[in-house]
Amino acid sequence: MRAPLLLAALLLAGTTAPALAFDCAKAKSPIETTICATPEAKRADDAMSAAYAALQAGMDKAHGQVLLRNQRSWLQQREARCRDWSQETVRIDGACLARETESRHRLLTGEAEYAGPGALPFRPSFSERIEPAHKVEVSIAVPQLAAGAGPAPGLDALLQAAAKTADDPVDDDPHYSYDAGYTITYDSGELVSVLFDIYVDHGGAHGQGVQAAANYAPMLGRALKADDLVDDKGVTALTNLCRAQLRQEKIRRGADADAVDGDLTDKAVGDGIRTIESWQFRRDGAAIHYDAYEIGAYAEGSYDCTIPWPVLRKAAKPDAPLPRS
């Protein structure tokens, strides 16, 4: 894979020198030409490259090398996610490139998808563990409170724990890789929600992608709990809502309408609602995430039940620490 011209050259050379916008007159690879042909992707790529350069400039050599390797990995992931694998000829989706690159820019700058009044400032941190002899490769990106942030007891620890949700390798694992990135989906003085996308591979038939959210209530000064949001009545209401939504999505994906209800039991759907790590908050409401295997076969992939703010507020406890506007 060839990454965008100048940034790719710097990354592959192992340097931590600043990366600048590349010259579209020299674009050759499918991903380069797609970026140059898609104004939104080009703007996002320029901004992301500048953010990467600024972050590198403030790091010592050791931390800069960790960021360098993390950026290399992300460039590969971006191309894999945005390539049309149904075609023999390499075709890249420009809208996907713009979306993925904008997300990376926010990660590198500590910005949230939605930032409301009282938003906390964040900065990214990167860590890794590489053991060639045991084929262990661990790469984790986590947001940390930036200088000048107000009191948020336990938030940094919550974020670190969420990034390491999946299991660690055992001594006799012949292979282990773990990659965690994040998106700050909501950030205000009322609620902070950070979504971690994690991929773990023990060397089996396939790896496993999972999501875990860290949700924090600044007004309470602690991590948010599912019990803070809904009582049994609320769980029942949201279970019925999500079951109907998930059933429709399963059928849309090709599932047999007569067979889907066996996967969508009260327990299976309700367990997600009772698990705060499954909750994701965004500008327009919340989502309950179900990883592969939780309500269906691995091949089905993951599912999300989306809950607009008005619906959630109606189902939530009267004193639930949720944004009120």
Rank of each mutant, 00 (worst) to 15 (best):
M1G: 15
R2Q: 15
L5V: 12
A8L: 07
L11V: 10
P18A: 09
A19C: 10
L20V: 15
D23S: 04
D23Q: 06
A27T: 07
K28T: 14
I31K: 11
C36H: 02
A37L: 06
E40G: 09
A44T: 07
D46Q: 13
M48A: 11
A50N: 12
A50R: 13
A53E: 08
G58Q: 05
M59C: 04
D60R: 03
Q65D: 15
L67G: 13
R69S: 15
R69G: 15
S73R: 12
E79P: 10
R81V: 11
R83K: 14
E88Y: 03
V90C: 06
V90F: 02
G94T: 11
A95M: 04
A98G: 11
E100C: 08
T101N: 04
R106V: 00
E113R: 15
E113V: 15
Y114M: 13
A115Y: 07
P117Y: 13
G118F: 05
P121N: 05
S127R: 06
E128M: 09
P132W: 08
A133I: 14
H134P: 12
V136K: 12
V138P: 13
L145S: 03
G150S: 08
A152P: 11
A157F: 01
L159D: 06
A161W: 05
A162W: 07
T165N: 12
D168I: 06
D172Y: 05
P174E: 04
S177T: 12
A180P: 05
A180C: 01
G181L: 01
G181C: 05
G181W: 01
Y182V: 07
T183S: 12
Y186Q: 12
S188Q: 04
G189V: 00
G189K: 03
E190S: 04
V192T: 04
S193P: 08
L195M: 12
I198Y: 06
V200D: 15
V200L: 10
D201Q: 10
V210Y: 11
A213H: 14
A214W: 02
A214L: 03
M219S: 15
L229G: 11
T239C: 04
N240V: 09
N240K: 10
N240P: 10
R243C: 02
A257F: 10
D261L: 10
T265E: 01
T265S: 06
K267L: 09
A268F: 02
R282F: 10
D284G: 11
I288A: 05
A292T: 06
E294I: 03
E300C: 07
S302V: 00
Y303A: 04
C305A: 07
W309Q: 06
K314Y: 11
K314Q: 15
A316S: 10
P318G: 06
D319C: 12
